[in-house]
């Protein structure tokens, strides 16, 4: 179809143009429309305090969804992250209660999260299990280990250094929000500027071609699931700081919220297409929606309906836009 001579020095289109055409455009517009609507509907929405509150509310799902984005980009899924949040939280709490400092406790929490993720990855990559099955197993195992370690009871009473993660503000912005944004920036960098990122998109786009091109597919998958485990551990730290208590039954259903954020953000469940920028917007949409419905006095039962509808509509819109962007690719 393309008959033009190789014009390899063609100017990169202007930024706004690229923004409009990007996969995230539709989701971003959705978020703006939602905010605009709530701004008109209620005077309580567009206040600095409320918006910061919304941002803070998004940190848990947002942080968890970072790792989920990596996994879904490779065409996988991770159902275990909610349980791994609980496991990492319990490990963190136990090490703290054992009288060790926050750094060592965080190290232990991340080790737990990353191990669980790496086991998922190994089962998928070397055991050739479908990701759904491997992580469904881990969902139960990690939950069980958390319950055993905590003896089924919540653990509380932590040093101020940990609490500070949820109480400190920098220039008025909660530090947890800054941490989440930093993690998103890091993930964006990894996905778009590193070998690992290239391999992630390549495996999701065409696993066989990637393998034949010498991409270490199995190793990359283990790393990707370990990243999901690490992001669950980071989530556990933020959750513990906020609740001041580690619960072995924490994080139930979080995996589905994380998947929802990724999917609303325009990442394809088939893998190979999507971005963490979209995921951030997706997490914000869910947070804004919950907050707005609360402000409007909508019951939490009805909220569930609204969120379900949003997930489906977001994907429908994305598919329509994606079709457009396929014919527009230049």
């Amino acid at each position: 179809m393309i008959r033009s001579s190789p014009n390899v020095d063609a100017p990169v289109p202007p930024l706004w143009h690229r923004l409009l055409r990007s996969r995230e455009a539709g989701t971003g517009v959705g978020l703006l429309v939602l905010c605009l609507g709530l701004w008109i509907a209620t005077p309580f929405f567009a206040t600095v305090d409320n918006l910061l509150n919304v941002a803070e509310q998004s940190t848990i799902v947002g942080t968890l969804a970072i790792g989920m984005t990596f996994v879904i980009l490779t065409g996988g899924i991770d159902l275990s992250v909610g349980s791994v949040v609980a496991l990492a939280g319990v490990v963190l709490a136990l090490v703290l209660r054992g009288g060790h400092g926050v750094p060592l406790a965080m190290l232990a929490a991340f080790a737990a999260g990353i191990s669980a993720g790496a086991i998922n990855g190994a089962l998928v990559a070397f055991g050739r299990l479908p990701a759904f099955i491997a992580t469904l197993g881990m969902m139960s195992v990690a939950r069980g280990v958390a319950l055993v370690l905590a003896d089924g009871r919540p653990i509380s009473g932590f040093p101020d250094a940990l609490r500070a993660l949820s109480t400190t503000r920098v220039g008025g912005v909660p530090v947890s929000v800054l941490i989440m944004l930093a993690l998103f920036a890091l993930a964006h960098f990894v996905l778009h500027y590193t070998m690992l990122g290239r391999s992630t998109y390549a495996i999701g786009g065409n696993e066989e071609a990637s393998r034949l091109a010498g991409i270490p597919v199995a190793r990359t998958k283990v790393i990707i699931y370990a990243i999901a485990g690490a992001s669950a551990a980071a989530t556990a730290v933020l959750l513990l700081a906020r609740l001041n208590s580690a619960q072995p039954i924490a994080g139930i259903g979080y995996e589905l919220d994380a998947i929802a954020a990724v999917v609303i953000g325009g990442t394809s469940l088939l893998g190979g297409a999507g971005s963490v920028t979209g995921t951030l917007i997706g997490a914000l949409i869910m947070s804004v929606l919950r907050n707005g419905l609360n402000l409007l006095g909508v019951s939490s039962y009805v909220q569930q309906i609204a969120i379900g509808v949003v997930i489906v509509v977001a994907v429908l819109v994305d598919m329509a836009l994606h079709k457009r962007s396929q014919t527009l690719t230049v």
Binding site: R198, A202, G205, N206, A209, S210, A213, I215, G272
Partner: peptide, 21 residues
């Protein structure tokens, strides 16, 4: 299509695939 290319990725990314390192 099945074994050689990442159809939705760019020409550039496809060429770079085996030499990422």
């Amino acid at each position: 299509k099945r074994e050689g290319l990442l159809l939705d990725r760019s020409v550039q990314e496809n060429i770079a695939l085996p030499v990422l390192r």
